[in-house]
Design a protein around this nucleic acid. Sequence first.
DNA 1: ATAAAACCTCAACTTCACTTGAGGTAAAGC
DNA 2: GCTTTACCTCAAGTGAAGTTGAGGTTTTAT
Lengths: 154, 154
Amino acid sequence: MAEAIWSVGKVAKRCGINVSTLHFYEQQGLIHSWRNAGNQRRYKPEVLRRISVIKAAQKVGVSLEEIKRAFESLPNNRTPTVEDWQQLSKNWQQMLDGRIAYLQKLRDNLAGCIGCGCLSMTSCPLYNPDDKLAELGSGPVLLDRAEQQAGVDR
Amino acid sequence: MAEAIWSVGKVAKRCGINVSTLHFYEQQGLIHSWRNAGNQRRYKPEVLRRISVIKAAQKVGVSLEEIKRAFESLPNNRTPTVEDWQQLSKNWQQMLDGRIAYLQKLRDNLAGCIGCGCLSMTSCPLYNPDDKLAELGSGPVLLDRAEQQAGVDR
DNA sequence: ATAAAACCTCAACTTCACTTGAGGTAAAGC
DNA sequence: GCTTTACCTCAAGTGAAGTTGAGGTTTTAT
């Protein structure tokens, strides 16, 4: 059966990250721990889910700052419930949909623009930042902003 | 008609970046210029395409180092031809396809995993980095590597 | 009981991708 | 012709996301 209490080393090994990274994440307020009698960190299994989410988010270009804000919707006085994580998941999906749409447009643009060889300064959308590429928004989208843009009901 | 020779300021304004960024990119070997009689930088219109590609690549999490390597397939003794850009574009599309697939799996995973509320340490793919999520590769994919993985013919 | 492994703090260092500033030259506009 | 704007170099600074190291304590294994 899965243990109910974890040490830094165990968490680090399980997640494939350094102990120092766990210290760093804690210092940044992304994860939480309590201390045992000998001042060593102890974690609830919940921390593994948080770290999984952090790593997944980073892969799609979300900053720790934004992840932290997303986590602020989670309760810090009690262990997050299924509903808590579902709400976070829902917000994330909107963001991911946006990112996917961006990449698809970018891919098509490359095919149709670089690939076409037009190299026309006046009509090529790659040359003109206010055209197709620009209207997709500027890169890694804030969770909050993605939410706002989609007009999410709370 | 479009000008054939550009100054730093014009390029910067056109691309929506700082002059200092152009200096930096040049220092990093991402773009090239020649100097006029008064030692000021002059650019071919080609530089706009390079910068567009740099910005697009960064949005999807590609580092300058990787972009530089991708650019190394472009000729530096002559202005890149349509074919040169097409080759680069082809490599990119493979990379983008990979990124898109990653995001789609991540989205579905969030729906089916965080959303489901299973919170099971032993069966949840989010908790187990060697499962579904991990097999997607580790984040921003090298252009070269994306190529290799896809078994691109040269 | 003791040695090895794991943990602690705190400060400093690293890499990436730029930005800022000082001190000076060149080009453009009136 | 002069002044404003644009440009030059070089060095140092910034912020994000950690990593490394020193010096010391706690836990675990034998």
